[in-house]
Amino acid sequence: MILRTGPFSAQVSRRFLWALPVLLAAVAALVWIAIGAGATPTTATERLSALRGEGLIGDLRRPRILVALLGGAMTAASGIILQTVSRNGLADPGLLGLSQGSVVAILIGGLVFGLGSGALVWVGLGGALAVSVLVLGLGRGTLAGGGIVLVGLAVNIVLGSVTEIVMTSGDATRFARLAVWSRGSLAGVSAGDLRLIAVWALVTVPLLLALSRHLAPLLLGHDAARGVGVDTRRLLPALVLLAAALSAPVVVVCGPISFLGLIAGYVARRLVGDAPTEVLVTGMILGGGILLLADTAGRAALAPLVVPAGLMTSVAGVVVFLLAIAADRRLNR
């Protein structure tokens, strides 16, 4: 199907046209539930004004919801780019070690050099970039069959040990606090954090959408992509840089959110097929929705117990993901 709007035209699959409004509606419904969920009961009018950022409820819930949506979308996008670049559906900023690279850089920058959160994004970006270059460099040519993911895992283990050195150098209270952050949580999100994420999203997401049309040839393999005239030597580093820039700010604000990129990418491809731009858009909506769902369920379902979003995505996310694959297999048998 071909869409035409003035001078622009794009080929869009039927499945994408179905999935897009359904997903957007689901996310909108989720936002409506999330803005109403919490210790204080809210009426519909109060929810509307809270969504506009008015009142205490708006001040407390709105940044958290927006950070979940943006952060989830950015993490998912980062994962999908890495999946395309490495031609491996299991790639994810967490599994490939990018998040852990940011974590180490941020811990050292924050605890040893006492940097503020604005500067920490750049430090985290540096960490993520260094790791992505290392992992993609080492795993070059070993992309199929999960090889690169294992390289990422090994790098993750080494970086995790460095994190441990930093975390265990203080007292037990600090250890517990850093441990919660290092597993991902939106509990500390404030309006300042939202601004930080929003600025990075404003820069990275348009770039991402602009670059996304070059992703399709990459799916055929880097050689084939060069064959159809894609300058892979420039495109690949740009994409990796973008993947790092999408995940680093999220790590600074929420800590690493495990498996989100993996899950969002998998589900998006099952929904809309392989066209990169469609997978990206679908995956980002899914990523934002999943993180918002995880965070809202974590803070509301067991209240007054607050379960961190990172825990929700890694437990519920992994279980649902595995069940989805199982169901998928059964249907296709």
Partner: peptide, 16 residues
């Protein structure tokens, strides 16, 4: 973790 992770990395690379 530091040394074992590095050895694991080498093993993975060799295997792949």
């Amino acid at each position: 973790g530091l040394s074992g992770g590095a050895i694991f990395l080498v093993m993975v690379l060799a295997l792949v």
